[in-house]
Amino acid sequence: MDDINEAEVIEPSLPFWVTVAEEGDDDSLSLFGNRNSEPALRSVPLGPLRKNLAETVDALQQLFADAAGDGGTLPLAEAQLSFQVTASGGIQLIGTGQMQGTRGLTLIFKRPS
Results as ranks from 00 to 15, higher is better:
1 M>P: 09
1 M>I: 10
1 M>E: 12
3 D>N: 04
3 D>M: 07
5 N>S: 07
7 A>Y: 09
8 E>P: 01
8 E>I: 02
9 V>N: 09
9 V>R: 13
10 I>A: 04
10 I>T: 06
11 E>Y: 02
12 P>H: 10
13 S>P: 01
13 S>N: 09
14 L>A: 12
17 W>V: 11
17 W>K: 09
17 W>A: 03
24 G>E: 06
25 D>A: 07
25 D>E: 12
26 D>I: 14
26 D>E: 14
27 D>Y: 15
27 D>F: 14
27 D>W: 13
29 L>W: 15
30 S>G: 15
31 L>D: 09
31 L>A: 11
33 G>K: 11
33 G>D: 05
35 R>S: 13
36 N>Y: 15
37 S>K: 02
37 S>D: 05
39 P>W: 04
40 A>W: 02
42 R>I: 09
43 S>K: 14
43 S>H: 12
44 V>F: 02
44 V>T: 00
47 G>H: 11
47 G>C: 10
51 K>F: 09
51 K>R: 14
52 N>R: 12
54 A>E: 15
56 T>C: 10
57 V>T: 06
58 D>F: 04
60 L>D: 03
61 Q>D: 06
62 Q>F: 06
63 L>R: 15
67 A>I: 04
68 A>L: 03
69 G>W: 00
69 G>N: 03
71 G>L: 03
72 G>T: 03
75 P>S: 03
75 P>T: 02
76 L>I: 00
76 L>N: 02
78 E>V: 14
78 E>N: 11
78 E>P: 03
79 A>T: 06
79 A>C: 09
84 Q>C: 08
87 A>K: 13
88 S>P: 05
89 G>V: 07
92 Q>D: 10
93 L>R: 00
94 I>P: 01
95 G>E: 15
99 M>S: 13
99 M>D: 07
101 G>Q: 08
104 G>C: 08
104 G>W: 05
104 G>V: 02
104 G>L: 03
106 T>K: 12
107 L>E: 01
107 L>K: 02
108 I>F: 01
110 K>D: 14
112 P>S: 04
113 S>H: 08
113 S>I: 01
